[in-house]
C-alpha cells in the first residue's frame, strides 16, 4: 500500500511537472485526462484494493470454530478481564489479560459507562467497547511475550493512562501469578 501510494504520488507530480515544462504543443484531449486517467486508472486501482480489503476482512472475522473466549470490560478508567486460568477455571484480572499463543482468541468487549476502545497495536485491529452491547474481536498472537494495550477512543480525564497489557504464554504453561496483581486486589 505504501509503495503503491508513493508510486501514484510520484506519477501525479511528474505529470504536473511535465505539464508545466512542456514546450508549446497541441492541446490536451479531454477524454484522455478525465475518462482515461480520472475514471479508468483510478477505478482499476480501487477495485483491486477494495477487493483485497473485503478478502482480508472476511478472513479475520470471528467465527464459531472453538476459539478461546475471553471477556474484556472497560470502565472509566481501566479494564477488567475474565479468561481461562491455569486450572481451566475462569480467572478475573485487572489491567492484565492472559492468552495462549498460536490459537485464535475471541475477545468479548463491553463497557460499563462510556465508549472505550480495545486496542493492542502489535496484535491487530481495534474494537470499540460500547455500553449495552458486546462486540467480539478476534486476535491471534504467534509469539509469547508481553504486549501493550490501550484505550483508543477518547473517554475523559483518564484516557491517556487507560493502558493494559496482554501476556501471551505457551499453551499449557500459564505464567506464575503470585507476583502479579489479579482480580483479588483492588486499586
Amino acid at each position: 500500500m505504501l509503495i503503491g501510494s508513493a508510486a501514484i504520488i510520484a506519477f501525479v507530480l511528474i505529470l504536473l511537472a511535465w505539464a508545466w515544462r512542456r514546450p508549446e504543443g497541441k492541446g490536451a484531449d479531454e477524454r484522455v485526462w478525465t475518462l482515461g486517467l480520472g475514471v479508468g486508472f483510478v477505478m482499476a486501482v480501487l477495485v483491486a484494493l477494495v477487493g483485497y480489503g473485503f478478502w482480508v476482512g472476511e478472513r479475520i472475522l470471528p467465527r464459531s470454530d472453538g476459539a478461546v473466549r475471553v471477556a474484556a470490560e472497560a470502565r472509566q478508567w481501566g479494564w477488567a478481564f475474565r479468561q481461562p486460568g491455569p486450572d481451566g477455571q475462569p480467572l478475573e484480572t485487572q489491567e492484565v489479560l492472559y492468552v495462549p499463543a498460536g490459537v485464535p482468541i475471541d475477545i468479548e468487549i463491553t463497557s460499563t459507562d462510556v465508549i472505550h476502545s480495545f486496542w493492542v497495536p502489535r496484535l491487530g485491529g481495534k474494537m470499540d467497547a460500547v455500553p449495552g452491547r458486546v462486540n467480539v474481536a478476534r486476535l491471534m498472537a504467534h509469539t509469547p511475550g508481553e504486549y501493550e494495550g490501550l484505550c483508543a477512543e477518547f473517554c475523559g480525564l483518564g484516557h491517556s493512562f487507560m493502558r493494559f497489557s496482554v501476556i501471551v504464554y505457551e499453551p499449557g504453561a500459564f505464567p506464575d501469578l503470585s507476583n502479579r496483581q489479579t482480580g483479588g486486589a483492588d486499586e
Binding site: 473485503f54 472476511e58 472475522l61 470471528p62 467465527r63
Partner: peptide, 10 residues
C-alpha cells in the same frame, strides 16, 4: 456488490 461477497451479520 458486498451483498454477494461478504458475510451478512458477522
Amino acid at each position: 456488490l458486498p451483498i454477494v461477497v461478504t458475510s451478512s451479520c458477522g
